[in-house]
Design a protein around this nucleic acid. Sequence first.
DNA 1: ATAATCTTTGCAATTGAGTTGCACTATAAA
DNA 2: TTTATAGTGCAACTCAATTGCAAAGATTAT
Lengths: 136, 136
Amino acid sequence: MQNVDEILKIKNVKNTAIRTIVLRHLLKQDKAQSLKDIENSLIETDRSSIFRTLKTFVENKIIHSIEDGSGMTKYAVCAIDCNCELKDLHYHFYCNNCNKTFCLHEVPFKKIKLPENFKIQEANMVIKGLCNNCNK
Amino acid sequence: MQNVDEILKIKNVKNTAIRTIVLRHLLKQDKAQSLKDIENSLIETDRSSIFRTLKTFVENKIIHSIEDGSGMTKYAVCAIDCNCELKDLHYHFYCNNCNKTFCLHEVPFKKIKLPENFKIQEANMVIKGLCNNCNK
DNA sequence: ATAATCTTTGCAATTGAGTTGCACTATAAA
DNA sequence: TTTATAGTGCAACTCAATTGCAAAGATTAT
Ligand SMILES: [Mn+2]
Ligand SMILES: [Mn+2]
Ligand SMILES: [Zn+2]
Ligand SMILES: [Zn+2]
């Protein structure tokens, strides 16, 4: 697991108690986390503080957000060299059975040929179906 | 433009006044519509009735929903032979400037090689950037 | 045709994720 | 130390989405 202080330093975000707790939590997860997920895990910590922490992290490319259609935005840690734009584009998988959302970092992202004059800046790619645990 | 009654018949959804109005409206659009968009266009019609109409349409594969990260679910008419599962998978484009969301029906959907034992059922693919009108 | 049943609609109220205002605290600069 | 800046906790608010319920409409049985 990557070092929290190191990441904050690289991404130029000041180290505070809450930021350390939230980032450490996110790094431990095997699935993308909603604000509520984090709130439930870090019961001592205030929701709006977590919210603002996530906002700061997204703005500074420490994490990225995923709209998986569950009604709650999910968050996952970015690759260390990610600028959340054309680098580190990747698919996500939402399991219709266990409701977990994963980053599919290992699946190569295919370049999409857009219509004339369209310019890609970011993407929110969510494949839905059954994950390896649920597809039995 | 396709015929409203025809579509409803094919998809086995009873024809009612509101359903006709909503579907006719959706067929006319060049961008995906939010509940609020529709509400604003069809001022006579009650929001919850439109909401339930959209729900019925999604359940019966007349339309599909798109999570584009704007905070409002968008809806667009399906291809007539769509089952909203592995057929008619397509990308969407969200313009960061004019905030319109389009179906990119003409862009071929590339088959994604998922990890072992993952099974795709549907997808919510949203590419974000500048549309041809705004990229100047 | 009439009554019974099921479906759809309109309105008001509720839910819940997300967001903000504000006072207080902690940290950094002067 | 004083002053300015940034971060936090709490409560309140926003707003898209959803629901309960009764009235209206459509369908089926008698
Ligand atoms: Mn991801
Ligand atoms: Mn579409
Ligand atoms: Zn699963
Ligand atoms: Zn545009």
